[in-house]
Amino acid sequence: MLANMEVIDALEHAEKLGKMIKQSEDFHIYTKRKQDLYQDSEARKLMDDFAKMKEHYEDVQRFGRYHPDYSKIMKEIREQKRDLDMHETVAIYKQSETQLQGLLDDVSEIVANAISPNIKAPRDGIALKDTGSGCGCGSGGSCGCQAS
């Protein structure tokens, strides 16, 4: 029973920590930038266009370089991704997202090191990223390649 109470206590502390993070300036900036992003009609159109193009991209990835539209789709998706990433509202949102991720990474590292220096804490959101090669080899996605 004591171990269960310790676990419950740790979870309650984690919940408090989450609430503290939600009260941080980084979180408030992030939520404001996210709201700005979804209120920007041009940014929403770019995101919608990119999502549609990504469907074509995924179809092309099934066949790789053998797909008749491979080169065209690969070029178009890179151009759309660049246009999306270069849009001012999107870029500002991504900066705030990176800032908040840095805070979360710092907290994770502090918690991990408080337990043991041997525990690895994810940095730069690496736990959320595909660790595939990212080479875009045209193998149909079997190696983990992705356009985004």
Rank of each mutant, 00 (worst) to 15 (best):
P117D: 10
Y30R: 00
D40F: 02
K19M: 11
R62I: 05
Y70I: 03
G144L: 04
L104I: 06
H13F: 05
C135Y: 03
H28Q: 13
D124L: 04
D83P: 08
I119G: 03
L37H: 02
S96D: 05
F63Y: 11
T31M: 07
M53K: 09
K75L: 07
E58P: 01
N113C: 06
F63D: 10
T131N: 15
Y93R: 07
I126Q: 14
K45P: 00
K22M: 09
M53S: 06
V111A: 12
S108K: 07
K34D: 01
G136A: 12
L17I: 13
Q39N: 10
I29Y: 01
L46D: 00
K16S: 13
C137A: 15
S142M: 04
Q146C: 09
R82N: 13
G125H: 02
H67Q: 08
V60N: 07
F50W: 13
M20S: 07
K22F: 02
M47K: 10
K94N: 12
L128H: 03
I92M: 12
E76D: 14
A14D: 13
Y93P: 04
L104G: 02
N113E: 10
A91H: 10
L103S: 00
I8H: 07
L104K: 08
Q61M: 14
S148T: 08
E6S: 15
E12P: 03
H67P: 09
Q39T: 06
K81D: 10
R44W: 00
S41N: 03
H87I: 03
K19G: 14
A112M: 03
H56F: 03
Q146I: 06
G18V: 07
K45L: 02
V90F: 06
L17T: 14
I77F: 00
Q23E: 15
Y70M: 04
D36P: 02
V60P: 05
